[in-house]
């Protein structure tokens, strides 16, 4: 079992969701986050006071998958999120120790799907 975490551009969320559904990955969690990578943030001005290097809005996806779905998930995220510019984001893949479905007490691979 792996946990795939992806940080993407907010406006690419719909594209990524579409690609994930096409790859039959249907269970995702999405949250709004702020991030700062190579893109260096943006300048903001408030009543003349300039603030540089502010964090940019990003979207964070969390997807728990069985081994066989790891590659399709990564491919789908890249396909949906890539623009070729800095700021497209990153994908992290972590080992997942345990997974329990609250409704049924099912564990492991059964609970993930």
């Amino acid at each position: 079992m792996k946990l795939v975490i992806a940080i993407i551009q907010p406006h690419k969320l719909e594209d990524v969701k579409k690609e994930l559904y096409a790859a039959e990955v249907n269970l995702i969690t999405v949250s709004e986050v702020l991030g700062h990578g190579q893109q260096k943030g943006v300048t903001e001005i408030y009543r003349g006071a300039k603030e540089t290097g502010n964090l940019l809005r990003k979207v964070r996806l969390e997807i728990a998958v069985n081994e066989s779905f790891v590659e399709p998930t990564i491919k789908a995220i890249i396909k949906g999120a890539k623009t070729g510019n800095v700021g497209d984001g990153k994908i992290f893949v972590l080992d997942l120790g345990r997974c329990v479905r609250i409704r049924t007490n099912e564990e492991g691979s059964l609970a993930i799907g």
Binding site: H11, V33, L34, V42, T43, Y46
Partner: peptide
Amino acid sequence: EKEEAMGLDLTQHHERAYTVL
């Protein structure tokens, strides 16, 4: 296209309406 994706608040006015944190 890039400015449209980022939004007009940040690109045209260097402001944002709502903070996240």
